[in-house]
Nucleic acid binder design. Structure first.
Lengths: 347, 347
DNA sequence: CTTGCATAAGCAAACGGTTTCTAATTGCGT
DNA sequence: ACGCAATTAGAAACCGTTTGCTTATGCAAG
């Protein structure tokens, strides 16, 4: 009926040996200049079991300088603002790390932080995964403490590891798909201004590649003039009836979803009259808009790879680490893209 | 160029005072037989700031026997399987806890766990929030260690605190709305069989209340016979053309979204010919299906309340804690519900 | 009868804080 | 000049582990 849990000393006292001996026996730190008689070993093990001894991991962490914790940073903004691809990423990270059986615990930081505030937890972590971006103080601290890290879908400082999708190649893939279907009037819908603030590379990469590819193919670019979320129906009327667009490539599934709803309201049949596609991943697509044609950002692959790279950095710090891994995006054709309407259909 | 973080001793040495003095100043443990000259206080604070000193929480926890960590358990299944209401819940929990300024860190467990495995992290936590459910070994461990906890949207063991939405009342609200619009042929679409496995109370509560209310109002219940995700169009054809449903109440936004898409494909106008509504929350509704009429589960309120209750339990353990808090659900009318079509419209 | 070397186990110093106890200085009334 | 409380500060113990170093013992070789 003791109120405190048994400690190493308790076991040692009962067994009539010293703390260090118990520690070494329990952690199998035998050999290497240390040994015990088998009889003593058994006695200690027996007593530890009898007392239901569990090591205090806080104390252990203190001496070992390792918490066996891997922390995912940026969960709040990534999971709630940047769309659901991070859900997939996180799932795959934990899957890889759990399956390695090295006893690492994965946690996700869900607090909101000001941009001038560090997102690092108060305790020491053994590794970090950064979703898209982190605040500057966070990066400073990670570098200062020499904590292994991998950035997913965002920029890493010089020498840092990152895993990013190839948005340029993905955008080309999307346009190629639409052009092969016969579209010539292809519009692009950027994210709402509110999200452009985050300044993610995908925003410029997609838009600029769109502009470049349209030009290269001798087509006139059509970019939605105002915010998608302001008044999607007005936007869509403009794109389809004024600018005569027959296809729209949207920045993300949120924009695509809004466009589809608006098309529905305006009785613009998709895909017969208008093709719609966007960037997203299988998970988001399945849950939120089954049937939407999309460019898969490969979030699952990003998560898996990032976790593997991180574990390598943790377990083999001396090993040369890769700087930046760029993954191809892939096209998933569903049912919202089709050849453009013929001229008589339009009339 | 030191690679290790500055410690209390470093600060003490630089300031020319002892560790204890620094500790007391930094933690505001003045008064009570201890005091410092203001000048020394300022100097110590200044140096701590300059060195960017952050106390080592591991060491601190060792003496204080508290980690200042609040862990959210069940994040993986809740966030990825049970829909996005948990996103809102988590956001509000962190908001409340951050705003209290008591220095608690919130982490979300994202690992997958087998049902016979404990989800408790290896380190000691000061409190836990359980999203919907946790494994049995987890609950055992929490109770054994006497860790304060709150269950959100799920059952708590005897004497435990839980915050749950009133699905019975919510379902009544939904049906009342549809009946007041004039609907008599109201169908209910349960979640895919795959999700029924989790056995959440909402699954039975909604369906049984639906059955009870229909009966009470002398109406024939229409329950979708097969899995929504199997072939939504077939399902919808059956409900609308065979069973003559004019309104559908769906278990969640996933089902509703699929139904809307199918309605679109089948050229069944919503809401003119068919009303659709579901259970979800403002966040999910805004992101995933703007315009959908829904019953708000009050996820924001649940998160806020749960966090407050948990903090109370942590800071005032002796205080009598509430057992089970039931929150009302609310109706949010958007544009997918309207009076049923008249008979001539149907013809 | 020393030396040398395994083998077996303990001592004590970390780790980075908090807290209790104790000591030195100051202020002030007499 | 003296005593006593209040103020200011440091030394040391402690939290529960790990680990480098030391010590004791036994036994074979020189």
């Amino acid at each position: 009926m003791k109120s405190t849990a048994p400690s190493l000393s308790d076991v040692a006292a009962q067994a009539g040996v010293s703390k260090s001996t118990v520690s070494r026996i329990l952690n199998n730190r035998l050999g290497n200049g240390f040994s015990v008689k088998e009889e003593v070993r058994q006695r200690v093990l027996e007593i530890a079991r009898k007392l239901n001894y569990r090591p205090n991991l806080i104390a252990k962490s203190l001496t070992m300088r390792s918490t066996k914790m891997i922390h995912i940073i940026g969960g709040n903004h990534a999971l709630s603002q940047l769309g659901n691809i991070y859900q997939t990423v996180v799932n795959h990270i934990t899957e890889v790390i759990d399956s390695q059986g090295q006893g690492f615990d994965v946690t996700v930081d869900m607090s909101k932080h000001r941009p001038d505030e560090s997102e690092m937890p108060a305790w020491k972590i053994d590794g970090a995964v950064i979703l898209a971006r982190c605040t500057e103080p966070t990066m400073d601290e990670i570098l200062q403490l020499g904590i292994p890290y991998v950035v997913i879908n965002g920029p890493a400082p010089a020498g840092g590891t990152s895993v990013v999708p190839d948005d340029v190649q993905g955008t080309r893939l999307a346009l190629k798909h639409l052009m092969e279907l016969g579209h010539r009037k292809i519009a692009y819908t950027p994210p709402p201004r509110k999200y452009m603030m985050v300044g993610h590379s995908s925003i410029t990469d997609r838009q600029e590649t769109y502009l470049a590819q349209m030009k290269k193919n001798g087509l006139d670019p059509i970019i939605s003039p105002h915010d998608v979320l302001d008044d999607t129906e007005k936007l869509l009327r403009d794109l389809v009836f004024e600018k005569k667009a027959t296809a729209i490539l949207a920045y993300g599934h949120m924009e695509a979803l809004n466009l589809l709803q608006a098309a529905h309201s305006l009785e613009i049949p998709v895909p017969e009259r208008l093709s719609v596609m966007c960037f997203c991943d299988h998970y988001a697509n399945r849950i939120m808009s089954p049937g939407l044609t999309f460019i898969d950002l490969g979030s699952a692959q990003m998560g898996t790879l990032a976790a593997q790279l991180l574990l390598e950095q943790i377990t083999q710090p001396e090993k040369q680490k890769p700087k930046r891994v760029v993954l191809d995006e892939t096209l998933c054709v569903r049912s919202t893209t089709a050849p453009p309407p013929s001229d008589e259909q339009l009339a």
